[in-house]
Design a protein around this nucleic acid. Structure first.
Length: 586
RNA sequence: CGGGGUGUAGCUUAGCCUGGUAGAGCGCCUGGUUUGGGACCAGGAGGUCGCAGGUUCAAAUCCUGUCGCCCCGACCA
């Protein structure tokens, strides 16, 4: 039992100017966190309590699923990351943790980094400690602070530079075992989110910088999310937009036959899709081929899309480059022979074809029978271009961004798109890390084999904010029972009156005996202030004790999520409070 | 990093265009009256106007630079 007057809950009437979304405002107004700097927050007592509750639920579900808790360092020798498979890709977001007097040149690699995640730490550990198939499978987890120098921290805890995450890493003897672990984690996640009261949607996801092959994300649908989820209402198809495909090109599609031969025509000053659409050319965007130039691991490559389509950059990840970025005009001209705006991939028109690592075409261009594209000669384009006949394509793939309304890949129904917050992510990693770090075991045939891994994250601090985003009203937060900082708030309107204080104590003890945590608002404030604060901090069950009620022989019981007030006769009050705690309505 | 915005008391902000005494509300302190949905009265404390330079007799206000923060895009739990 805590007394408000002895505790620390700095609530605010007005929300700070730098908080824009509801959950961020409430996080601050309800006294859960305070900002130190961009993406850096202090968890105040109330916020910390919520974090601890979420963590505890997470811990329980992990352990039920057979995972073992440990704790790894936050400071990592940079060397380990340099040995790993993603140093180049991950160093951008890593904080350097050089110690003073390291005497490093500017720009030199850091000696230490702050851990953004822990594959590079757990894998060497397991390599050293586990060598036999008899000791596998194992699944280790920790709940710890992560450090990522996010390019743009935002929305409070939603995307922070320092945040709390549960991360788990599974090690198996083979793929079948790893799949089993993957599914075990996936269902543990479902139980976890159900318990914390977060409604999530599971979607197929891109693996991003993490690497790996299979991946699902747990999303909380919310307007303010920074992911787009593509889904079919009937089919059950749901995928992150970065990964989503549509049935634009049906299975068994037969490309149209080629027509007239390719012909060049002058297009002075026209360097955009829109420019070619306009008079006098009148070429629809859908029958243009857009040629994008990227640099992958130091070499140029081309991506061909229909003029009406947009590149989904994340899909370039499957091409296998460690690092890629759009090429600059200076890099393009010598290889293609023209400036951006006149580029194309028609066979024989590329100045230095061997200067390209490949030409990758989105499969949707196969829908085009006769297209128009740049001639690799400034001021000229080519028409009557047939994808298969004329373009010098290395391979076809899915690179375009899905748009709302396109057909579901399974059922053909129009796809929908909604914003969502990613709160959990499971990856099937395979042997990418174990091979790199030599995490091998000896099987029963005395053969050395790489362990098959999976990794699994839950954003603990982000989940806290997602709870608020999903459960609040105009007056404040409405905490789900399981994660509320306190479950019962006793609003003691006359803390100085002995009879009132006595009832507060008795009812608080009754609630605690029934298993609830209790906060007593014993401040010398007017009732209005207490009620407003009660709604703001969102404790699920409120018991009001005041002179008016006591005169009537009652105390009041009210759920934060309902508007009705129940009057409890004093004689029944303790039992009724205990009964309410046993059957929470939140 | 690109684009947009913004920095004035613990919080929300007015003043800036058109240079000349920094002002309000909330919160805080003291006293009093109040006491079931953010009370009222009286008094009080609290501000290097983000920082640095410049223009000027004079800069919160104009100019330059810089830093922080917020929003939109790429990154992610």
């Amino acid at each position: 039992m805590k007394f408000w007057s002895q505790y620390f809950i700095p609530t605010l009437k007005e929300s700070p100017a730098d908080a824009e979304i509801a959950s961020h405002r409430l996080l601050i107004r309800a006294g859960l966190v305070r900002k130190l700097g961009g993406g850096l927050y202090t968890y105040l007592p109330l916020g910390l309590r919520v974090m601890q509750r979420i963590s505890q639920i997470c811990r329980e579900e992990m352990e039920k699923a057979g995972a073992i808790e440990l704790q790894m360092p936050h400071v990592h020798p940079a060397e380990l990351w340099q040995q790993g498979p993603r140093w180049a890709a991950a160093r951008e977001i890593m904080f350097r943790a050089d110690h003073a007097g390291a005497g490093k040149r500017a720009g030199a690699d850091p000696e230490f980094v702050l851990g953004p995640t822990h594959e590079e730490i757990i894998t060497p550990l397991v390599k050293n400690e586990i060598t036999s198939y008899r000791d596998l499978p194992k699944n280790f987890f920790q709940i710890a602070t992560k450090f990522r120098n996010e390019i743009r921290p935002r929305f409070g805890l939603m995307r922070a530079r320092e945040f709390v995450m549960k991360d788990a890493y599974s090690f198996d003897v083979d793929e079948a075992g790893a799949r089993k672990n993957y599914l075990a984690m996936k269902s543990a996640y479902e139980r976890f989110f159900a318990r914390v009261g977060l409604k999530t949607v599971v979607v197929e996801a891109d693996t991003g910088v993490m690497g790996g092959s299979d991946s699902h994300e747990f999303m909380v649908p919310a307007e303010i999310g920074d992911d787009d989820v593509v889904y079919g209402e009937k089919s059950g198809y749901a995928a992150n937009r970065e990964k989503a495909t549509s049935g634009l090109v049906p299975a068994g599609f037969v490309p149209p036959a080629p027509g007239e031969a390719v012909a060049e025509f002058p297009t002075p000053g026209v360097t955009t899709i829109a420019g070619l659409e306009a008079a006098p050319y009148g070429v629809s965007a859908g029958s243009q081929f857009k040629t994008l130039v990227y640099v992958g691991d130091g070499k140029l490559f081309l991506v061909i899309l229909r003029g009406c389509d947009e590149l989904e950059e994340a899909k370039l990840g499957k091409l296998g480059f460690t690092l890629f970025r759009p090429a600059t005009a200076e890099e393009i001209a010598p290889v293609l022979g023209a400036k951006p705006g006149s580029l194309g991939a028609v066979r024989g028109t590329i100045a230095k074809r061997d200067g390209l690592a490949g030409i990758f075409a989105d499969q949707a261009i196969r829908l085009v029978a006769s297209g128009t594209t740049g001639a690799n000669r400034d001021g000229f384009h080519l028409k009557n271009v047939h994808p298969a006949r004329d373009l010098d394509i290395t391979s076809f793939g899915d690179f375009r961004r899905v748009r709302e309304g396109e057909p579901d890949p399974r059922t053909g129904e129009p796809l929908k798109i909604a914003r969502a917050i990613e709160v959990g992510h499971v990856f099937f990693l395979g042997t990418k890390y174990s091979e790199k770090f030599g995490a091998v075991y000896t099987d029963d045939q005395k053969q050395a084999r790489p362990m098959v891994m999976g990794c699994y994250g839950i954003g603990i601090s982000r989940s806290m904010q997602a709870c608020i985003e999903q459960s609040h009203d105009a007056d404040g937060i409405r905490w789900p029972w399981a994660v509320a900082p306190f479950q019962v708030l006793i609003c003691l309107l006359d803390p100085g009156v002995e009879e009132s204080a006595g009832w507060a104590k008795r009812l608080a003890e009754a609630a605690e005996r029934a298993g609830a945590s209790v906060l007593v608002d014993d401040r010398a404030e007017r009732p209005g202030v207490k009620f407003k604060d009660a709604d703001l901090i969102g404790i699920p069950l409120r018991i009001t004790i005041g002179g008016r009620g006591l005169k009537e022989g009652i105390v009041e019981l009210k759920w934060r999520s309902h508007s009705q007030v129940e009057k409890l006769p004093l004689a029944e009050a303790e039992a009724r409070v205990a009964a309410a705690v046993a059957q929470p309505q939140a």
